[in-house]
Structure formats: C-alpha cells, structure tokens
Design a protein around this nucleic acid. Structure first.
Lengths: 264, 264
DNA sequence: CAGTGGTCTAGACCACCCT
DNA sequence: GGGTGGTCTAGACCACTGA
C-alpha cells in the first residue's frame, strides 16, 4: 500500500503539483478537444489504470470537473460530458413579481402555516406569524434546474380559498391564488443575494441530485407598500446553471469565465 | 482492510444514509451550539477516532462543511470555525462604473495587449484586438475577498500614458487612467451573470487559497455608446462571500438560506 | 522539532441500472 | 448478472506551520 508518492508525474520536479490537479488539467484538455456533450467516458477503474493512479485519486480529479459542471456522474450509468451551463434569466424589478414572465414553473405544493424563525426575521415579522408558502420547480429545456420557495405573509395576502383536502390540485389553485393577489400590489423594488450552498435531502430530491450537491442560493426580497411583501429562496443547480441579470433577451453567450488568461 | 461497512451508524437500518453525511449533520449541530467563530476544532486524527470512522470519511464531512463556508482548514494550523459569510454589494447600474463607489480595491497590475479570444468575443471585437487589462483585488474587512479583471477595448479608451518601465507604480497610474476615462462615458446599462467556478493557480494565489477553491464568477458587461464598452470578470471566494444586488445600504442581514424548512 | 492538514494507495463492499 | 459510480478503510508519506 501507499507507494512513496514522491515522483509526481510532471517530470519537472520543480513544483510539487498534486497528481489529481495535473490529472484534472489533462482531462480538461481531453474534454475540450476529444469529447462532445453527452459522450460517455471510460469507467473509473479503467481510467485510473490508464493514468497509473489509484481510483481515489482519479475520483478527486473527476470531483473537481463535476464541481465545474464539465461532467455529470450517474450511479449505475457512467460519467458523461455535461452540456455547457444554461443561462438562467433572473427577472428584473421592472418585470414584476416572480413567475410573471414566460418562465416555466411546476407547482410542488402550497400551504399556509406559521413560518420558521429565519423567514419571519427576513420578512420583518414577529416570530411564527402565518405565511403562505409556495414551493415550485423551475424548468428549462425539460429539465429541473431549480427549486423555489415563496413566502408571503398573510397580512399581505389575507384570504386564500381554504381547500382542506390536501391534493396537488388544491395546492395548485392555492398557489395561483397567492400569486394572482401578489400581482395586484404595486412592486416598489427588490433586493437579491446569491451565495453557494449545498442541497439538503429535500431540495436534493426535488433537484434530482444526491444530497450535498452544490447549489446557487438566490434570495429575493420584494418591496411593496413600504415593507417586505414577499420573500423567495431559490436553489439552482450550480453545475448546470448560470444566473443572468438584466440580460433581457440574449442569454446564450458564453461568458469569459474563470479560465481567462492573458497571452503574456 | 475495508471492514464490511454494512452497519452504518444510524441504527435505524431503514435508510442507508452515508456515514459522512450523518457526520456532517452531527458536526453542523455541534458548530451551531458549541463553537464560536474562530474556534479551533480538534485535529482530524482525533476527530476520526472519536467518531469511530476512518480519517478519509471524516474528511469527506469536513469537505462539505468547508464548501458551505462553515469551516476553514489551513495546512499546518488546523481547522477553525468560519465567520458567517460577508454580504458583498454588487453595485447597480445607477451607481456607475466599476469601482466608483466606496469599495476598497487594490491594483495588482495593468497592461495593454491583445485580448484572449473569449474576451474579444464577449466584447464583440475581432479576435486579438488590443484591450486594456486591469487586474485588481477587492478587499473587505482587511481580507481579500475577490479578484477582478477589467477589459476595455482601446477603441473605447484610446490613449493611456505609456510608461514602459513595468512597476507597480506604473501599473497603478495606468489603471487609474483607464478607469478615469471610462467614467467620462455615459453608462447606458449593464448585464451580469453569476456562476460557480474553481480558482486556477493564478487566481487561487491572489485569493490566498489553494487551487480548486470554489469561487463565484461574476461577469459584467457595461453598455455605453451603443456597444459593450467594458467587461469585468470577478471571482469571489465562494466560502466567504454572499453577493448582494440592489440592497443599497443594509447588507448584513442573514438570508434565509438553504436550510429553510417548514414546521410541518 | 512535533503537529497539522493534504495527498495517495490498494482493496473491499454497497446501491443502482440495464439487459 | 455484470457493469457503473458511491462509500469506506487502514496505513503511509508529503508540505506547511510554529515553537
């Protein structure tokens, strides 16, 4: 076990670059030149043998590439080359309340109940005040790309037809009712934040990914009538999404991403 | 080696939750209740022994927590509890050109040279057209939180006093000159995108993190005189930063992040 | 120097998918 | 069943930090 690890592949001996990092570089080049979207890579045991490293080391390189959204690994299937990230438009204040546009959403469920403390705080409410909660999935090109939870205080949208039978039809109509009433308010503005998170069990399931999957967490506060009238927390798959702001229209431009480098 | 792995800790036997994921949950609870920012955790060998798992398994859990920005690990030092993420204001169109505000920036270098193809494409230029390139670091609370590269075509800002001696003073004056001239143009608007990336060697060094560190890549296109007059690519440390948009003023509000959960 | 996290190995078993 | 990725182990050495 544990051979000496000293000789580390590059041959230069000047900089002790980790094997997995070098491997990643090699694979990036291969991905750029020899593989197309959707192609399946050789399995991990073969690859590790081919590169003369332990499987764990190869996996460390693949982990990086998956984080970068270049690969998708599926248990029982294999490792395939991922499509370039999708540009996901984040609507601007001028475009109104969430989900008004031409985005495709799928209602998951809806309810009216006391909100968790963190949500009440963000909405400027006393703890445990009742809020409407709507959960929905954002779809794009037939795929789930994000999960959103919308919170609206009952003091903003008071009455929603109470259908007690818990069914997807009832949820759906409740959700539509909340959204409809929200859109009657004049929207004064909004503020957003984006950060990195990981999907917990629930979200992970909605996003069709394993727990721990990195996500972009987009939090939006909607201002109306001089207060925070609604709050959304959206988690987008970090591997497949690029959130775009104010890019009204053109979205499919490849950004000059991290690997920008001067010719010097 | 490799004991049977069958009994997996939870005791329930109903759901085969991975050990490292369960460990993460345990550690999250411990961090929330028993540790304060800056406190040092026991070392990995002790922790793995205490939890009765291999060190690699413990590390898998710590990797997750580091990705979430809850921990910072430093070679030779130890693992410490991270401070909550900083809210990093991303200036709005109304606030003008980059770096105009009260943000703290530190010039790294500046030059005028043919741009890489991806940059030219994003700027709508023929390949290899000359652009001014300014690299600078964004500081906050005395820490480096991001690295930004600003690209401005020479056709937008033509002459910059040519100082051929390559020095930090010369770079700095060149950079200021470019920014000053940019600010004379009327800014029509801007479009942004945010995505997840990993820091390559160069960026990683600027951000004082190891290569492979996850970053939020913020790409901004500035519109002026009916064209894309400038492009910035900023990489922010994903573990310490939460990008905020249009939150003019209040920034230090804890967002209702991924772990939002209804009481149901 | 001793102590810490970072990398690497060889081998094992598990969960899942498809045929 | 046979193949794939996912998890786990025990042990080793390396690179960095600070006394």
């Amino acid at each position: 076990m544990g051979t000496t690890q000293a000789a580390n592949g590059t041959g230069t001996a000047t900089a002790p670059e980790p094997k997995y990092w070098h491997l990643r570089t090699v694979l990036v080049r291969a991905l750029d030149s020899e593989f197309g979207t959707g192609e399946v890579l050789p399995n991990e045991r073969d690859l590790s043998a081919r590169f003369g490293v332990a499987r764990a080391t190869l996996r460390q390189a693949l982990d990086q590439l998956e984080l970068e959204g270049r690969l998708v690994r599926r248990r029982g299937i294999g490792t395939v080359v991922a499509a370039p990230r999708m540009g996901v438009p984040v609507s601007e204040a001028s475009e109104g309340w969430p989900g008004t546009g031409r985005d495709s959403w799928r209602i998951v469920d809806a309810e009216s109940a006391p909100a968790p403390a963190s949500v009440c705080a963000a909405l400027g409410l006393p703890a445990d005040e009742a809020v409407h909660t709507v959960r929905r999935l954002r779809m794009m090109h037939g795929q789930v790309i994000g999960a959103e939870t919308l919170y609206v205080p009952e003091s903003v949208v008071p009455h929603v037809p109470a259908i007690f039978a818990k069914s997807s039809v009832a949820d759906s109509s409740r959700a539509r009712s909340v959204l409809r009433q929200l859109q009657r308010l004049e929207l004064d503005g909004e503020s957003r934040s984006v950060e990195l998170g990981v999907a917990e069990e629930q979200q992970a399931q909605l996003l069709e990914r394993p727990p721990g999957t990195p996500v972009l967490v987009l939090t939006t506060r909607y201002q109306a009538e001089g207060r925070t009238a609604a709050l959304t927390v959206s988690t987008y798959r970090a591997d497949t999404c690029r959130l775009t702001f104010g890019a009204s229209g053109i979205v499919d431009v490849t950004p000059a991403a991290a690997e920008v480098r001067t010719a010097s």
